[in-house]
């Protein structure tokens, strides 16, 4: 399988990449290529111009600034998985990255790539939504910050304009007394999720649930926040009865697809089961 013919461009700065995107219609940014090259080989995408940003220096980094972690767009899934900063301050993002595909895919795929690809069953987007992360988008008229809740718009569709690139990805440093879990229901390790759940739970000094953020993957056109589940947790002591009752609400507001991996009904049931497991696991991980 070979992609359709295209012109290959290799800008040396992001500004230049934006100019090229703006100049050429039917152009696409190429980062790790682990989604785009696959689509091009299958001829589901046939851009006329490929703008390879992987040679632009300085786009792979992880740093802490204030209460945020700033991540360069070309930072690979492998680096996100293993970064000490992310592991310590935002472990759920490492956990999600560690569940992507396999080692070779994680060595090449990038954080901005998976966010921009916006597959509702992908691991990092679901987690990014639970984290209330944000991306810094850069276009020819300047930069803007797009929040996770606004970023994912539809299947494989984001709020980026065609001539914008993601310049940086930001996630919060999680507060103390926070436990997180990303769990993925897939038939085989390395597969895309049938249902995935990202859970972030913060308790107050009396061990009452101060905030809860639950996001579901693979149950709609974008990752979705399980708002009713969150509301059923906040302000309560998280006994197992509370968790079980809240998880029963995980099928509210979702529109799961039916495909060979599972029917819509199955996914809706699994959303409840995996929400329960993710909350329990997140809770068990809260340290002193």
């Amino acid at each position: 399988m070979i992609p359709r013919s295209f012109e290959y461009l290799r800008p040396s700065t992001l500004q230049e990449a934006v100019q090229l995107l703006d100049k050429y219609e039917e152009s696409k940014i190429l980062a790790g290529g682990q989604s785009l090259i696959a689509l091009m080989k299958l001829r589901l995408a046939s851009p006329k111009y490929i703008i390879d940003i992987t040679r632009i220096p300085g786009l792979s980094y992880v740093k802490e600034e204030g209460n945020k972690i700033l991540i360069g767009p070309l930072t690979t899934h492998d680096t996100v998985e293993n970064s000490p900063i992310i592991r310590n301050k935002c472990p759920i993002l490492s956990e999600a990255a560690s569940r992507i595909g396999d080692q070779q895919i994680r060595n090449r795929g990038t954080i901005a790539g998976t966010l921009c690809h916006a597959d509702p069953s992908a691991d990092v987007p679901t987690t990014f939504l639970a984290l209330d992360g944000e991306v810094v988008a850069m276009g020819k008229d300047g930069e803007r910050v797009i929040k996770a809740k606004d970023f994912f718009q539809d299947f494989f569709t984001t709020a980026l304009n065609p001539n914008e690139v993601v310049k940086e990805v930001r996630v919060p440093v999680l507060p103390p007394k926070t436990g997180t879990a990303y769990i993925k229901h897939a038939r085989r390790e390395g597969d895309f999720a049938i249902v995935a759940v990202a859970a972030i739970i913060t308790l107050d000094e009396n061990n009452v649930c101060k905030s809860a953020s639950i996001s579901l993957g693979s149950v709609g056109p974008t990752p979705l926040r399980a708002v009713e589940v969150e509301n059923a947790l906040v302000g309560k002591k998280l006994t197992d009865e509370v968790i079980v009752a809240a998880s029963e609400l995980a099928d509210r507001g979702i529109s799961p697809p039916s495909d060979i991996h599972g029917s819509a009904e199955y996914r809706a049931e699994m959303a409840k089961v995996f929400t329960k497991r993710a909350i329990r696991l997140a809770l068990s991980r809260i340290g002193g």
């Binding site: 290959y8 290799r10 190429l30 290529g33 390879d52 895919i105 090449r108």
Partner: peptide
Amino acid sequence: VKSCMVLAYQ
């Protein structure tokens, strides 16, 4: 890396 998922130019 999986070399079927990388362009030669890359």
